[in-house]
Write a protein that binds this DNA or RNA. Structure first.
Ligand SMILES: [Mn+2]
Ligand SMILES: [Mn+2]
Ligand SMILES: [Mn+2]
Ligand SMILES: [Mn+2]
Lengths: 243, 243
DNA sequence: CCCCGATATTAGCCTTGACTAATCCTCAAG
DNA sequence: CTTGAGGATTAGTCAAGGCTAATATCGGGG
């Protein structure tokens, strides 16, 4: 026996090139997805990955070594990692699944959008291609998930949009909420109650960066909040005139 | 800090009670389901389980020991096993999930009923209670899956029906197909093409048990077949008069 | 009553993916 | 330069679930 890659167990590991269906483990899929988010501009440090994935740093070092072996990530200074083109393709595939599933859970099954993330986090790894396609068809090929995130198309392309975190807006700015980060359920629920949902219009009434206090008017109501996590709300500016 | 992953191992079995949410592994769930089928009348032998599950006999012995430890199965003569009441409850819970999922895949997503078994086999372990309930609601609480199998209710009760395998019918008998065993895709596909689907009416034209040849009239067509696997078709006799 | 063949079990390994403890780097501040 | 505090990595374990090879056991035929 030589390398032992892939085909352990009683499988048929006949892949070869780079395109074939290699069936990544759940864990690997989650690492790749994390890298897609964290290594957007510069390579993601081990610690950031560990925090994001809820595992220890040694676990990350170890897994990154294996992923690098498999040409899914490249390693950089001080162990930081980024996706290779193939890794990126795989990651986008999972993101697509995740978002299609979330959309299905909300639109078809009527679950609450602040609730569906963890279900999708599991199912994204277990739904077959056939079922995924059927879900996509069932919903007429949606392009955005319930949190406003764009759904990559079947070839992994995402519409890149120019959005800003809410905290970066100057006082007086008008904007429309486009995306709500979906990993913090408690915060999502609070935001939803405050009217901070995809599509909502808002005006920044005051932005005191020194004291970290923001005053936002959303849907008629006034919301005063610290910036903590406020970068999870991405908005698009509108009405460019100054106040 | 509590990790969400892993946590299973560690120490003494801290379950004690019987009703708590113990979160059985996928493997355990499949063993229990297999026992529900195989140990219907008498305890299931190790070998039968191994064959059914596609694992080696030592793996079965080992897992049965653990399940017995956890009071989910009881061990009998020569290692044969059967479900305890708690094991039975768990098994029925998985069967319910399996069948609700199959029904959803066929009725809502339009997948073919000869195709959905393997998808359900995976998803049954990963769909949350919340999603399962939503699916059940979405389909208005179905009572039969696409193969005609009864769906256990939320408390695990199944409508027991008095059905006979097709091979047991005498020549001349009339019957309606009620259930098609769903684990053999190839056979299922053939049967479907022959019109042998849930609800179909049939007449046994000839049953030659010695030569193992059966001649069946289904939906106007004539089907000649060996008994091989024919016990996977369960029927209900109708029209009791002799020919 | 003994022996053989089918069944089951034991022993020993393997892989995956985590963890902790101990150690090793790096780099920026003094 | 030197040094120390954060990273990152190495070393050693663990649990789950598999597997194969070797061994034990049961039960029926001669
Ligand atoms: Mn996930
Ligand atoms: Mn989302
Ligand atoms: Mn299963
Ligand atoms: Mn079925």
């Amino acid at each position: 026996m030589m390398r032992t890659r892939t085909m352990s167990g009683g499988g048929a590991g006949r892949e070869s090139g780079s395109t074939a269906g290699l069936a990544l483990s759940r864990s690997r899929q989650d690492y790749l997805k994390a890298l897609l988010q964290l290594a957007d501009r510069s390579p993601a440090p081990v610690t950031a990955l560990a925090r994001h994935l809820g595992v220890s740093a040694p676990s990350v070092t170890h897994m990154l070594a294996r992923l690098a072996d498999e040409r899914l990530v490249s390693l950089h200074h001080r162990g930081a990692a980024r996706l290779t083109p193939e890794g990126s393709r795989q990651a986008l595939r999972i993101v697509r699944r995740h978002r299609i599933l979330e959309t299905f859970l909300v639109r078809a099954l009527g679950l609450d959008w602040s609730d569906v993330h963890e279900d999708a986090e599991v199912l994204e790894h277990h739904v077959s291609e056939r079922v995924l396609d059927a879900l996509d068809r069932f919903m007429k090929h949606p392009t955005e998930d319930p949190h406003g995130h764009p759904i990559p198309d079947a070839r992994g392309r995402v519409a890149r949009r120019a959005l800003a975190p809410i905290g970066e807006l100057p006082a007086g700015a008008r904007a429309v909420v486009r995306e709500i980060r979906d990993r913090d359920r408690a915060r999502m629920t609070r935001w939803k109650q405050a009217g901070l949902v995809p599509g909502a219009q808002l005006v920044i009434r005051a932005a005191n960066r020194d004291d970290d206090v923001y005053e936002i008017e959303v849907a008629g109501r006034r919301l005063v909040t610290g910036s903590e996590g406020l970068d999870g709300v991405l908005v698009q500016r509108v009405g460019r005139r100054a106040t």
